[in-house]
Simulated scan of single mutants.
Amino acid sequence: MGREGAPPLARRAGVGSATLHRHFRSREALLTEVFIEGVERLAARGRELGATAGGDGLTAWLEELTRYTATTRGLAVSLRPAGAATSGCHGVLADVAAELATVAAGAGRLRPGIAVDDLLALANGIAIQAEGDPELAARLLRIAIAGVEPSP
């Protein structure tokens, strides 16, 4: 069977169905890998922002996280039964958020007492509300962030 008869995902990737199945034992395995890769990209981006953006890195990263989550929430929900394969993702993101929050707090860009878990819950809640609309998610996050930054 040529690419014409391949599943849509294989066609879009420019490979045949057999190639796709050789690398991933199931659709769930492929989707899990896509999800984990996205989380790894977010973590790397957070580390980059922590090193280059100073106190503004947290806000920029939370916006990227919220956009990503609003775009991929359905994927995350569908992978929930997989559990073990994606269970470490929250910890990775929480660690990056904690690093960025430390830098932001040191730069006076985060009020004392704001917990990292609260920021992640806020980003997730906004993403749920704005599922499928990353622009709305980013706008809502910017509104919320204006409430967590200290007054001048």
Rank of each mutant, 00 (worst) to 15 (best):
A29V: 02
E48K: 11
S78F: 05
S78A: 15
V103Y: 06
L31Q: 05
R25N: 15
H23T: 07
A29T: 12
A85H: 05
G83L: 13
E40Y: 08
G38V: 00
G83V: 09
T71R: 13
L75N: 11
T19V: 13
Y68A: 09
E48V: 04
V39C: 07
L31M: 09
R22V: 06
Y68I: 07
V77P: 04
G54P: 01
V34Y: 05
R27F: 06
T69Q: 14
L20D: 12
E37A: 15
G54W: 02
A76G: 09
A94I: 06
L58W: 00
L49H: 03
R80V: 10
W61C: 04
G91I: 04
A85I: 00
A44V: 03
A101W: 05
S26F: 13
R67T: 01
A70Q: 00
T86I: 14
L31Y: 01
A44S: 11
G83W: 11
L42A: 03
L100M: 02
L42E: 02
T66A: 08
T19W: 08
A85W: 06
V77S: 10
F24Q: 09
G106M: 08
G38A: 05
A104T: 09
R47A: 14
E63F: 02
C89D: 12
H90P: 04
V103I: 05
T32W: 06
T86Y: 10
G54L: 00
G88Y: 03
T66V: 06
R67S: 10
E99Q: 15
A84D: 13
T59I: 04
A60I: 15
L42R: 05
H21V: 12
L20S: 06
G83Q: 11
L65N: 00
A98T: 07
L75K: 08
E48W: 07
D56T: 04
T102A: 13
E28G: 12
A43E: 07
R67G: 08
L93C: 04
A76N: 08
L75W: 01
T52Y: 10
G55N: 01
T71M: 02
R25E: 15
A94N: 06
A44T: 12
T66K: 05
E63W: 07
R27P: 11
L65Y: 02
G14I: 07
S87H: 12
G106W: 10
A70N: 02
T71G: 08
R67V: 12
S26R: 09
A101G: 11
L79P: 02
T52I: 09
S26D: 12
E40Q: 15
H21R: 14
S17P: 06
R45Q: 14
E28N: 04
L20G: 03
V77C: 13
Y68P: 05
R22H: 13
